[in-house]
């Protein structure tokens, strides 16, 4: 297990593994990791048998809520989480697309109220397989490739 992680061991915390390399910094920003006061290790362009190159983020003494983690599904559905307690992998988690997404994605419609008022956006996930969102306000649908994060 430690070999697979490729980076120094963690006593307690969360390891986010199998991040596509180009998404590493998005993962950091979605989870607000740059604002944390605990030690964080970010691995980038590491060798991976499965993915070729991958990224990894290790956060000490931090355990995320389910809905925080699930936000990652919009940009990196393949990530795997290892919850570490006392140097051991206590739990493994995968991300799954939530039923709705609040305050994370920008609405692509410039005439949407959310782009003109100081308010959070809100989308329902209408197609989990293909990742299609529907704006709760202006009702336009946004396909996976058109998703812009706030």
């Amino acid at each position: 297990m430690k070999k697979e992680l490729q980076v120094a061991a963690l006593e307690n915390g969360t390891v986010i593994d199998h991040i596509p390399s180009e998404q590493v910094f998005k993962v950091v920003s979605i989870l607000g990791i740059e604002h944390l006061k605990t030690p964080v290790t970010i691995g980038y362009s590491l060798d991976s048998k499965k993915m070729g190159k991958k990224g990894i983020v290790k956060i000490s003494n931090k355990f995320f809520e389910e809905d925080e983690i699930n936000r990652l599904s919009l940009i990196a559905p393949s990530v795997k989480l290892n919850i570490i307690r006392d140097y051991e992998v206590a739990e493994k988690k995968q991300v799954s697309l939530p039923d709705s997404v609040t305050g994370l994605v920008k609405c692509n419609n410039p005439k949407c109220i959310t782009n003109n008022e100081p308010m959070p956006t809100h989308f329902s996930v209408i197609d989990k397989e293909n990742v299609t969102l529907k704006c709760h306000y202006c009702e336009i649908k946004i396909k996976k490739e058109d998703i812009i994060l706030l």
Partner: peptide, 28 residues
Amino acid sequence: RHYLEGAARYASEITDVPIINAGDGANQ
């Protein structure tokens, strides 16, 4: 009636007074 889409939905969420949408942009 509002020129922005989703305006009536948003209004209905910020007040207890019932909102009737008389047109929100190209939406409803």
